[in-house]
Computed example of a mutant assay.
Amino acid sequence: MPTRRVHHLAAATAAATALTTALVTLAAAPAARADSAGPLHFVRPGESIQQVVDAARPGDTVQLLPGTFRGSVRITTPGLTLRGSGATSVITPGEGDENACATAGHGLCVVGTEEQPLPDVTIERLAVTGFAKNGIDASGTTGLTVSGTHVHDNGQQGISQEMSTRAVIRGNHSTDNGQSGVFLANYAYREGGSPDTGGTVVEGNELTGNRVGVTVRRLRGLAVQRNRISGNCAGVFVVGDEGVPRAGDLDVRDNTVVENNKACPANPRLGPIQGAGIVLTGTEDVRVTGNEVHDNAGTTDFSGGIVLFKSVVGTANSGAVITGNRLSGNSPADFADRDSGADNTFARNTCGSSEPAGRC
């Protein structure tokens, strides 16, 4: 064989070996630099997400490769990003690391305190399914981002957040969960007034097959916007009561709320729900604008397109501004004002029926 050809073959073999070695090294590296924000830590199926999360530092990214990861994950590190490879990176119950998140029955927990909120955690591009309680459970956070996740078939909430501010919950699929697709509250398990979230946004999510698409309970200063909400028992519930300050001063706008006709039985707090589009109970100064609300039909107290109803303790809505919405095919009415509240305004809406008459 000519010497020149031997040299070319040797060079090609050496280059291929070097490339292979580089790729293996990159995939195996526990802390390869991803960008200026911080190192990137890879986790493969069968490895412990929790161990890598616990070892990570603020600003790091934990990257899940495609596959199934068994066991709950608890995040307490500020500025951490937990990123999957899309819906093929799946967190499910199993014999993973035991932690407080697993003990509570949740899948993925982001945990700070009301006094010292955990800042700037990001959860993105992964799936969480099959947990007894909440798929993603956040408590005591500020600046949390949850995006591009598929949270489905969990026993209670899909994505839940309490005692938190400035969250962005965007572009997620939250489906077939036992309670809400997205649940936001001051406190999940105790009473209290309604704090201001500082601009939390629930935007561009697909919410189907849950008891309620989005529940906002005892909060102020947020927006539920541009979501597609269908196939639940109710689309949107904004829940207040006699607590001070009252729930309200928030926006429900530009959502598509269609055919939320699944039937859900009563629970200890609410009667049965079916065919409810957007429901306000015990709120003040809520703005409901620019929504498409169609074909929500049922025979419960909450059935109808946009419904005003007293809270469970009898508190009426006040100061609701319901404008520029397009409603059709909702039953028993497009607008159902079943409340005794004062100063609620209906203007520039398109609809075919209301109870009482005159709300269209």
Results as ranks from 00 to 15, higher is better:
133 K>P: 00
255 N>F: 03
284 E>K: 14
206 E>C: 01
131 F>Q: 06
194 S>Q: 06
125 R>G: 02
320 A>D: 07
206 E>G: 05
131 F>E: 05
244 V>I: 11
92 T>E: 15
12 A>L: 15
55 A>P: 04
19 L>V: 14
83 R>K: 12
277 G>H: 04
229 I>K: 00
240 G>Y: 06
153 D>F: 08
187 Y>H: 15
183 F>Y: 15
284 E>H: 12
23 L>S: 10
164 S>L: 10
15 A>P: 03
350 T>C: 00
174 S>T: 14
287 R>H: 09
312 V>F: 09
76 T>M: 13
329 G>W: 10
57 R>S: 13
180 S>I: 05
244 V>Y: 01
265 P>H: 04
172 N>S: 06
335 F>D: 13
292 E>P: 01
182 V>R: 02
348 R>A: 15
45 P>A: 06
154 N>P: 05
357 A>P: 09
110 V>G: 06
359 R>P: 02
121 V>L: 01
189 Y>G: 03
313 V>T: 14
46 G>I: 03
249 D>F: 10
196 D>W: 10
313 V>M: 05
3 T>S: 15
260 N>W: 04
147 S>A: 13
139 S>Y: 09
86 G>L: 11
208 T>E: 06
334 D>I: 06
326 R>N: 13
239 V>D: 14
235 G>L: 02
93 P>S: 09
106 H>A: 13
273 I>K: 00
338 R>Q: 14
157 Q>S: 10
42 F>P: 15
351 C>P: 05
270 L>W: 09
234 A>Y: 01
57 R>I: 05
170 R>G: 08
65 L>F: 13
73 V>H: 01
308 L>E: 03
166 R>L: 09
131 F>I: 06
308 L>C: 06
310 K>Q: 14
77 T>N: 06
55 A>T: 10
309 F>M: 07
55 A>C: 07
76 T>N: 10
184 L>D: 03
135 G>L: 01
195 P>D: 07
191 E>V: 10
282 G>M: 08
284 E>V: 14
102 A>S: 15
245 P>G: 09
35 D>N: 15
178 G>A: 04
170 R>L: 13
339 D>L: 09
84 G>F: 09
137 D>F: 07
300 T>R: 03
250 L>G: 09
357 A>L: 10
10 A>D: 10
298 G>Q: 09
279 V>M: 08
70 R>M: 01
45 P>R: 03
145 T>W: 06
64 L>Y: 03
9 L>E: 12
241 D>P: 00
235 G>E: 01
121 V>M: 02
86 G>K: 11
142 T>E: 11
335 F>N: 10
213 G>I: 04
252 V>M: 04
311 S>R: 11
286 V>R: 07
204 G>D: 05
139 S>L: 06
247 A>K: 05
81 T>A: 13
217 R>D: 15
312 V>D: 14
9 L>A: 14
60 D>P: 01
122 T>L: 05
60 D>W: 02
151 V>R: 01
188 A>W: 10
284 E>M: 12
213 G>R: 07
52 V>K: 14
28 A>D: 07
294 H>C: 04
4 R>Q: 13
340 S>L: 11
228 R>V: 12
168 V>Y: 07
251 D>Q: 13
252 V>Q: 03
225 Q>A: 14
287 R>G: 00
1 M>T: 08
58 P>Y: 11
124 E>N: 10
180 S>F: 13
340 S>Q: 11
134 N>Y: 04
143 G>L: 02
357 A>G: 13
